[in-house]
């Protein structure tokens, strides 16, 4: 899952080395905290959050078979 998330984020940001994904495992949900360089935050979120919402949709679809929920959060 982390791999998938990194792959998608690499497709939208410039500074690929600065991507930092932190996995926080909860009981019912797994939260992915994403950190990118300041100049890329806008690209990651997109107009009205379109890009980050598309990323969330894809990760949710990939999670489909397991019963744990996934959340993607952008840290600043």
């Amino acid at each position: 899952m982390k791999n998938l998330l990194r792959y998608i984020i690499e497709a939208v940001v410039d500074e690929k080395e600065d991507i930092n994904i932190n996995e926080v495992d909860g009981e019912k949900t797994t939260i992915f905290e994403v950190k990118v360089s300041d100049s890329d935050v806008g690209k990651l979120i997109g107009k009205k959050g379109r890009t980050i919402n598309a990323i969330r949709t894809i990760t949710k679809a990939a999670q489909n078979k397991q019963d744990k929920k996934v959340m993607v959060e952008v840290l600043q």
């Binding site: 890009t51 919402n53 949709t57 894809i58 489909n64």
Partner: peptide, 24 residues
Amino acid sequence: SIIIGKFGQTVSAIEYITRIHVNR
């Protein structure tokens, strides 16, 4: 059904990200 998603949500998301990738 996984890839199409609710009302085609997932395929639209894939399309959107793919567009960004190809454009760059």
